[in-house]
Nucleic acid binder design. Structure first.
Lengths: 144, 144
DNA sequence: AACAAAATAGTAGTAATTCCTATATAGTAA
DNA sequence: TTACTATATAGGAATTACTACTATTTTGTT
C-alpha cells in the first residue's frame, strides 16, 4: 500500500477529510498481509483508538474501496479487504471458500482488451483461479 | 450450462439424489444470463414450485457450487451465482459493485503456473478486472 | 411394497452490515 | 484565532443475508 502522503493527496483529490480514524484504518490495513474482515480490522484499530465504532471502520473501508485505496475480495459471507496493492493473484477453493494469494510474474502484465479500456477506468487486473484445495480433495476421496 | 443429462450424471457420481427441487433450480440458473442472488432464484423457482423453501434453494445452490455445477461471483454482501459455464470473464465496478461479463478469446487459455497445479485441483481460471464503470465515473466528475 | 438414507419445508436463530441521529471534528474563511 | 459549515463519528437500533434445527416427506434400492 502506498505511503501516508499519497493517501492525503487521494483524500484531498476526492474531497474527503483526513481524520484520525481514517489514518489509523489505512495504516492498519496497509500492515496486513492477509485478507482481514471488517471485524478483524476493527479489533486492531480499537487498540489504538479505543472509542472508534464498528460502523466507522466499516464505512471507512467501503470508502477506501470506492476510491481505489483498497479492494474487496471474497464472494462469501464475510467481506474481506485486501490492502496489498502489490501485484498478486487469487486462488479460491469452491468448497471451503478460502482464498489464497499467489504470485506469478507472467500474470502481472495482462493486457486489457481495447473495448473494455474504453468503457471503464481499469484499476486492477488479477487472475482468479478456482478449484479444490488439497484438504477438500482429500475429504472428497474419503467419502467414497 | 450443460444439459440435464449431464446434471443427472454429475449427481449420481457425487451420490446426490435427483429431486424436483434440484432440477428446477438447475434449470432456472441455466436460463439466467446475469448473476442472480439466492433470493432472485428463489422467487423464480417459486413460480414453478410454490412450496419450495428459501433454505432449499440456498442449500441447493451451495451444493451446485461444491460439485462445480455453478460458481459464486461477487465478493460483496450478497452472494451471486453464475451458471454460465461458457468461458467468460468479469469486470467489477468497485463503486456500484455491479459485475459485468465480457468475452475475450485471448484470456481463455491462461496457463496456471506449475506449482499451483500441483497443490490444487484447478477447475476454472478467469480474469478479474476491477475499476470504475462509466456511470460511476461521471458521478465522480460531477461532484467536483 | 417396504426400507434406510437423504432431502425438504417451515420456521427460528445467528451473524454481518447498514441506517439513524445527536454530537463532534476538519477544513475554510474572516 | 475564532467562527462557521459541511462532513464524519459514536452508539445503538434495525435490517438483511444466511444457516441451523426438526419433523415430515421423498428418493433410490431391496
Amino acid at each position: 500500500m502506498a505511503d501516508l502522503e499519497t493517501f492525503y493527496n487521494l483524500c484531498m483529490q476526492k474531497g474527503l477529510k483526513i481524520t484520525p480514524q481514517r489514518i489509523e484504518v489505512y495504516k492498519t490495513l496497509a500492515a496486513c498481509s492477509d485478507h482481514p474482515s471488517v471485524d478483524a480490522i476493527y479489533k486492531r484499530v480499537k487498540k489504538v483508538l479505543p472509542n472508534i465504532s464498528f460502523d466507522t471502520v466499516n464505512r471507512t473501508l467501503n470508502t477506501f474501496n470506492d476510491i481505489g485505496a483498497a479492494f474487496v475480495v471474497g464472494g462469501d459471507n464475510v467481506k474481506r479487504f485486501d490492502g496489498n496493492l502489490e501485484k498478486h493473484h487469487h486462488f479460491k477453493c469452491v468448497k471451503c471458500r478460502n482464498i489464497i494469494d499467489f504470485k506469478h510474474n507472467e500474470f502481472d502484465n495482462v493486457k486489457v482488451p481495447e473495448h473494455l479500456g474504453q468503457m471503464f477506468k481499469v484499476l486492477k487486473t488479477t487472475i482468479f483461479v478456482e478449484g479444490l484445495c488439497r484438504t477438500c480433495l482429500e475429504k472428497d476421496n474419503k467419502l467414497k
